[in-house]
């Protein structure tokens, strides 16, 4: 475990450094409060600190205050180690954000025991953060494919359309559906069907840019949001996804299964400012056309813009 120690007294600093190294710590030693705060506020800085109170540039309590204010993503356990020993000092030190307070000269065994307490708190915090991140992932992702779930992909699409409209850009919506997926489930079973969906998801993610979004829209339906996608490229990009899925059969426990996907494509530039649900409805119409055209193909949603909406969208274009 890394630990930062700060003391302007070089002798005490060296003694502390050696004691902690013997205890298995990786020690960073600094001689003033400013340097201590700089190290502790770095995103990859130490999360355990022993700080003297009286130091040049920034005293121990000021370091605690600065760290509490600036490094909020992760918790830093800070201990004040000082010869200031009045009750008032202890209260002031703890109020500044320190977690513990030790009076100089330190007793080696007590110091190590207090630091172990700090480590227990940090480990507990790590576990809590891990659980929170796990819950956040589960709340936003589809458990089978690991893609964004329907709620999140809809939110992302909505946000992206607003941004696109503000910046007069273009967002492309791809709505894809695995062809004859019911037959897959019926003939080879749900386990192999799940394998197909997972592999389709993986291929879709691999076919888009890191800043595009892919989500599971329904059973075998997927929604892709292509950010800043030029209208001239949208069919090409949809074709790339279609080919990635159709090119090689998916390996399952029931053997290889050929899979294809039909896609409906919609460019926000063609449709102006419309509610997300309406645009998705249009993309779905295009998807239906792709199915009707024999599947394993891409169809573009052509606008049927009511005059009043067309008027509105033209008015909103930057001059």
């Amino acid at each position: 475990m890394r630990i930062l120690i700060a003391d302007d007294d070089v002798l005490s600093l060296r003694l502390l450094e050696r004691t902690l190294e013997r205890g298995g710590y990786e020690v960073t030693a600094v001689q003033n409060g400013r340097l201590a705060a700089e190290h502790l506020c770095r995103h990859d800085g130490p999360r355990l600190a022993l700080l003297d109170w009286v130091m040049p540039e920034l005293d121990g309590p000021a370091v605690c205050r600065q760290v509490r204010q600036k490094r909020q993503q992760v918790y830093v356990h800070m201990v004040l180690l000082t010869s200031k020993e009045s009750k008032q000092d202890v209260i002031e030190g703890l109020e500044s954000g320190a977690d513990d307070y030790l009076i100089k000269p330190f007793d080696s065994a007590e110091l190590k025991a207090r630091l172990r307490t700090g480590l227990r708190i940090l480990r507990l915090e790590d576990r809590l953060v891990e659980s929170r991140e796990d819950m956040r992932f589960k709340a936003t992702h589809d458990p089978l494919t690991g893609l964004f779930n329907r709620g999140i992909i809809m939110d992302l699409l909505s946000r992206e359309l607003s941004r696109t409209h503000r910046e007069n850009g273009c967002t492309t919506i791809l709505l894809g559906d695995v062809d004859h997926f019911k037959d897959v489930n019926d003939t080879v079973g749900h386990i192999a069907g799940d394998e197909v969906l997972r592999e389709v998801a993986r291929r879709m993610v691999a076919s888009v840019r890191s800043y595009d979004y892919v989500g599971r829209y329904g059973g075998e339906e997927f929604l892709v949001v292509l950010n800043n996608c030029d209208a001239s490229e949208q069919i090409l990009r949809a074709e790339q996804i279609r080919r990635a899925i159709a090119s090689v059969p998916v390996q399952t426990i029931q053997g290889p299964i050929p899979v294809t996907m039909s896609l409906g494509v919609l460019s926000s530039r063609d449709w102006g400012l419309r509610p997300v649900e309406e645009l998705l409805q249009e993309a779905d119409v295009a998807l239906y056309k792709a199915k009707a055209a024999g599947r394993n193909c891409v169809k573009l949603a052509s606008p049927h813009v009511p005059p009043n909406v067309l008027h509105q969208s033209l008015e909103e274009q930057p001059k």
Binding site: D9, L11, V54, S83, K104, P105
Partner: peptide
């Protein structure tokens, strides 16, 4: 006060 404080810390460390 500052010099005394620093020296006191050193002397404390040295018993």
């Amino acid at each position: 006060r500052k010099s005394c404080h620093t020296m006191r810390g050193m002397l404390l460390s040295l018993g």
